[in-house]
Simulated assay, not measured.
Amino acid sequence: MPANDTRPLLSIAGLSASYGTPRGPASALAQIDLELGKGENLGLIGESGCGKSTLLKTVMGVMPGNARIDAGHIAFQGRDLVSASPEQRRAVRWAGISMVTQSALNALNPVLRVGDQIAEAILAHRQVSRAEAWRRTQELLAMVGVAPERARDYPHQFSGGMRQRAIIAMALALEPPLVLADEPTTALDVVVQDQIFRSLRELQQRLGFSLLLVTHDLALVIENCERVAVMYAGQIVETGPTRDVIRRPAHPYTLGLKNALPRLGSRDEPIAIPGGPPDLVDPPPGCRFAARCPFALPLCRSEPPQLATVAPGRRARCHRAAEIDALAPLAALPQTWDALREGPG
């Protein structure tokens, strides 16, 4: 992308995708609109099964065989990836867009040395000798805090934190402008998690890549991302600057996620959102969150809300977004949500 190009690095518009199931297609992504700028960090949060990982796999072009894109566009550096040929997608993968996966142990081949796996990614995209690729591999490992001589070790000889660092090294091998991170520290303790994210921030300052981070951990997003997108049941329900969204949510689901976050110095128990996401083979006709929302109106159950601007730089998918300041104090009360455990209001 030219230095004076003001287009978003990644622009997703009207993206819908589904999985084929014996009962029919499951609507995994529905009308996703999202943008990510050059050098920006965007956090993607939501419950398990809300579509976060599906979105990353769709952008990366590694969807499983039973998945398909039904509508929309994914523009990377101004080029549409949905209509791109398999060869064009392969050229972008790793060189333009790379991915840090959730389980490094599963991502690494157990019978190949770690260094060989990183070098292979370099050789697949760069016209360099194997010796040059090996030197670059050792530099990458040192850059992420792993001793270069460990390149000759196998994955089982690495600790969990070292394996995750190796995956990060592989993701950065070709210095891509966009890195997708899918729950990159889920299986690690909080000390190692903090070390890895500190390394990522340092590497980002050095290399200038953009980061799309998928996580369940709201605290990680607050600490590492300028903007946040909240997903529920395959849809984006709220977007905006992280601090603004967390301080003053504009969607009841975001209020619920905030309530579920433990607070330092508070003796109050976190408040869980009752129930579970809807069946995406047969999603509800109105708002997908209505059955779990204590503030749902009859309109919410019949008319799907649109993702609309609620403040400068902020959007929310809620019929009652304009009333959210009045509803927020009620959302902080356990009894508000307890009423749903007896059935929809």
Score class of each variant (00 low, 15 high):
21 T>E: 09
32 I>E: 01
223 E>A: 15
113 R>S: 01
104 A>I: 00
59 V>R: 00
68 R>F: 12
300 C>V: 08
23 R>P: 09
310 V>R: 02
119 A>P: 02
162 M>N: 09
41 N>Q: 14
157 Q>A: 15
306 Q>Y: 01
33 D>L: 13
28 A>G: 00
125 H>C: 05
57 K>P: 04
201 R>L: 11
55 L>A: 02
72 G>H: 05
345 G>H: 15
88 Q>K: 05
122 I>E: 03
147 A>E: 14
326 A>G: 12
62 V>M: 10
153 D>A: 14
99 M>D: 00
243 R>D: 13
331 A>G: 12
190 V>A: 14
305 P>H: 05
44 L>F: 06
21 T>G: 09
203 L>Y: 03
48 S>D: 02
297 L>K: 01
175 E>I: 01
30 A>D: 15
50 C>L: 08
233 A>Y: 05
328 A>K: 05
107 A>G: 04
134 W>A: 13
73 H>C: 09
66 N>F: 12
247 R>L: 15
151 A>G: 02
179 V>Q: 08
213 L>S: 05
82 V>F: 02
17 A>G: 14
324 I>L: 12
98 S>H: 07
233 A>H: 03
250 A>N: 10
145 G>Y: 04
85 S>E: 11
342 E>A: 15
79 R>Q: 14
258 K>D: 14
268 D>Y: 00
139 E>F: 04
23 R>F: 11
315 R>S: 13
120 E>Y: 03
36 L>G: 10
190 V>P: 13
299 L>M: 13
221 V>L: 13
129 S>D: 12
268 D>F: 05
152 R>P: 06
72 G>E: 11
291 A>Y: 05
200 L>I: 15
312 P>I: 04
2 P>A: 12
271 I>C: 04
265 G>P: 07
90 R>W: 10
297 L>S: 13
261 L>V: 15
337 W>C: 08
232 Y>K: 07
89 R>G: 11
159 S>V: 05
247 R>Q: 14
247 R>F: 14
124 A>F: 01
